[in-house]
Design a protein around this nucleic acid. Structure first.
Lengths: 340, 340
DNA sequence: CACGGCGTGTATAACGTTGTAAAACTTGAG
DNA sequence: CTCAAGTTTTACAACGTTATACACGCCGTG
C-alpha cells in the first residue's frame, strides 16, 4: 500500500499541509517541526504521488524528445546529453521516434503526446515550415536542426551552410576538384538542402563547377542509403575525387562501396562525413567529419524548453551551436598520394 | 485554456459523468446521447487530462526502459522495438540510461522513477543477483539479458552460453585453434561471464585449451575498449588466430587495431562479434556476429511488463528469445587463405 | 498592558477524472 | 392505469496534492 501525505500527517500528529510544506521545503517551518515530520516521512517511506502533484500544479515534469531515428549514433549521443541536462532540472525525458516521416513529425508537433508533456524538443527531417506555422498548441516547442525560415520557435542548430562550406573547402584545399554530394533528399528535407547549398556555394566560390550530376538523392539516411548513392554515382560513369556525405553513416556506407570497387580512400577519393559519430573513428580508414557540439545542443535545447514554461517566456531565438571539422585518415593527403 | 469534462458537460447540457461515459465508451449510453455529447466534444476540442485520469485510476500509462548506454546501436534498435510494442498497447516509453554502473542500476531498480511509471524494463550490466533479491517495489520489473540465478522476475534473453558456443564452434570449424575472448569484465558482469563460459566450454569440448591468457578484461563496452583489449593481447606477445568479442563495437575496435598492426582479417585473424549492429555490415571487412532477435525481445519485454499489471499476474518466467549466427567476411575462409 | 505585525501551523477548497449508488426515466405486463 | 423490472443518467465522493485564507502564538513597541 502506498503511503500518502495523510498517513504521514497522522503519524506525525500534524496537518497534511504541514507535511506538504516540509516536503516542498517551504520556508516557514521551524527546525523542530521539520525534523519531526521528516522522521515520520522516513519511517513510513513516503514518496510523493506525481500524478496528484501534476494534477494540482498543471505540470508533469516530463519533456519529450522526438527524433527521426535512434539507430544513428548521433541521435543516441544527443539523447544522452538531453537526458543529462533534463535531470539537472528534475525533469524526465520521454523519447519518441518519428522515423523521419512528415506525418509522424506533424503528429508529434501537433501534440500527439501533449497531454503528458510539459515541453517538446523536436528534430524534424521532412517537416515543412508551413506545417509548423499553424501549429495550435500551448506546449512549448524547441526545434533542433536548422530551418530556413523564421518561425516563432526556438531553433538550436549549427550553421549547416557554413559547416558544409568548411567541409568542401577542406576538400578543395587538398586539391580535389570533383566533389560529389551524397544525401540530397528527393523530398527536399531542409537540413539536407542547406548542406547541398553549402556544397554549391563553396565550389562556386572556388571557381569550380558545382556539377549537379554529382549530387545523389536518397530516401533514407543510413549506411545502406549512402552505399546506394555511391554506387549510383559510380555506375553513372562519374569518377569524383572526393565525396561529402550528409552524415557519417552514409559516408561509411559510401566508403564500403569504394572499397568493394577497389577505389582507395583517400588516395583516389577523399571522404568527409557529418556528425562525427564514434563509429567513424574505428573503421579501416578513419573518417573526417563535421563535429557538432552535441553536449551543448542538448543542454541548450533543455534550457530553452524549460525557459518557455514560466510566464516570462523570452522571444523565440535562433541559437547557434558550435562545431568543428575533425580531420582524419579519409582526407589525409593530396589526390593519388599514398597514405603516410 | 484547457477544456475539461465540465466544460463539455455544460456545453452539451448533460452531467459530467455522461460525458465521461461517452469518452470511455461505456455501454449504457443511447446513440442519440452519444452523438450529442460527441458533437460538444468535437466542438470544444476536448482532450482528457491524463494526470487526473492517472490519479484516479492509479496508472500512468508509462513504462520505463533503462539501458546501459544508448550509444551502442544494439540498444537503439531495441529501444525502437520497445517503443513500437508499447504504443500498440497505448503505452508510452520513458527512457533512462544507467551508464551500466551498478549504482545507477540499483537506483533505477529500486524505483528511482517508480512514482511515474507503471512498469520497468531493465537491461542490467553490473547489477548483482543479490541486489535484486531484496528489491522492495510494487512496480513490475522485467529484466533483459540473461541472469545466472533464479529471481522472481521475468527474464528475457537469448541463451548467451549457447550463442557464445556457436560463435566459437564456427571459428573452430574454420580451423582456428587459438581463440581470444575480448570483453570479460573485471567487475564480473554476468552477461560477460556467461559468454566467457560459452567460450571456455566450447574450446574444451573441442579438445582445445581454453587459454585464460587470451581473455582480455575491459572496463567499458565501446569501440575504444575493444581496441584497448586487442592491443593488450598483441602487446603481450600472443598471436591468436581468432577473436570472439563481447559485442560488435568492441569487435570493430579490435579490427581497427589489427588493421593498424598489419594483420589481415580474416586471413590472419578471424573475428566474431555479438549483437549484429548495422555498422558491422559496412566496414571494409564486414563482421560475422551473433544476431539476437531484437524485435521479439522488445515485444516480449513489453508484453511481460503489461501482463504483470493486472491482478492475475503470471508466475515469473525465463523467456528465451531467438538468435542466429550471421556469417560475413570477418570469418570467411580458413587461416591464411586469401579472401575470395 | 493593549496592539499591530510577523512567523508558524491548520482547515478547506480546488485540480479533472472515474466508481458507486441512487434517481430518473422507459418499457411491458397485469 | 399501475407497478415492477430494466435501462439510462445523475449526484457525489473519492484519488493525493498544493494554494488560499485564516487562526494562533509570540514578540516588540507605543
Amino acid at each position: 500500500m502506498r503511503v500518502s501525505l495523510k498517513d504521514v500527517a497522522a503519524h506525525a500528529g500534524v496537518s497534511i499541509k504541514t507535511v506538504s510544506n516540509v516536503v516542498n521545503n517551504y520556508q516557514h517551518v521551524t527546525p523542530a517541526m521539520r525534523e519531526r515530520v521528516q522522521r515520520s516521512i522516513d519511517a513510513l517511506g513516503y514518496q510523493p504521488n506525481l500524478a496528484a502533484r501534476h494534477l494540482r500544479k498543471g505540470r508533469t515534469g516530463i519533456i519529450a524528445l522526438a527524433l527521426p531515428e535512434l539507430g544513428n549514433p548521433y541521435f543516441a549521443e544527443l539523447t544522452a546529453s538531453v537526458i543529462d541536462a533534463a535531470s539537472q532540472h528534475d525533469y524526465i525525458v520521454l523519447l519518441d521516434h518519428t522515423g523521419g516521416s512528415r506525418d509522424q513529425e506533424l503528429l508529434v508537433s501537433q501534440g500527439f503526446r501533449a497531454r503528458v508533456i510539459d515541453g517538446l524538443i523536436l528534430s524534424p527531417i521532412e517537416l515543412r515550415t508551413e506545417d509548423l506555422r499553424d501549429r495550435d498548441q500551448d506546449v512549448p516547442l524547441v526545434l533542433l536542426g536548422e530551418r530556413d525560415y523564421d518561425l516563432p520557435y526556438d531553433h538550436i542548430a549549427i550553421d549547416n551552410v557554413a559547416a558544409a562550406r568548411d567541409a568542401v573547402r577542406h576538400l578543395i584545399e587538398l586539391g580535389r576538384r570533383e566533389v560529389a554530394f551524397i544525401g540530397a533528399r528527393r523530398d527536399r528535407s531542409e537540413p539536407a538542402q542547406l548542406r547541398v547549398r553549402g556544397w554549391r556555394e563553396e565550389l562556386t566560390a572556388a571557381g569550380l563547377r558545382a556539377d549537379e550530376g554529382l549530387v545523389a538523392a536518397v530516401d533514407g539516411w543510413g549506411h545502406a542509403d549512402g552505399a546506394r548513392a555511391m554506387r549510383h554515382i559510380l555506375d553513372s560513369g562519374r569518377r569524383p575525387d572526393a565525396v561529402f556525405a550528409y552524415n557519417d553513416p552514409m559516408a561509411i556506407g559510401a566508403m564500403r562501396v569504394l572499397h568493394e570497387r577497389g577505389l582507395r580512400v583517400p588516395e583516389d577519393i577523399a571522404v568527409v562525413g557529418f556528425d562525427d559519430v564514434i563509429e567513424g573513428r574505428f573503421g579501416a580508414v578513419t573518417l573526417t567529419s563535421v563535429s557538432p557540439d552535441k553536449a551543448a545542443i542538448g543542454r541548450l535545447a533543455v534550457e530553452s524548453v524549460l525557459a518557455r514554461l514560466g510566464d516570462n517566456a523570452p522571444a523565440p531565438r535562433r541559437i547557434w551551436a558550435d562545431y568543428q571539422l575533425v580531420e582524419r585518415e579519409s582526407t589525409l593527403g593530396r589526390p593519388g598520394a599514398a597514405t603516410p
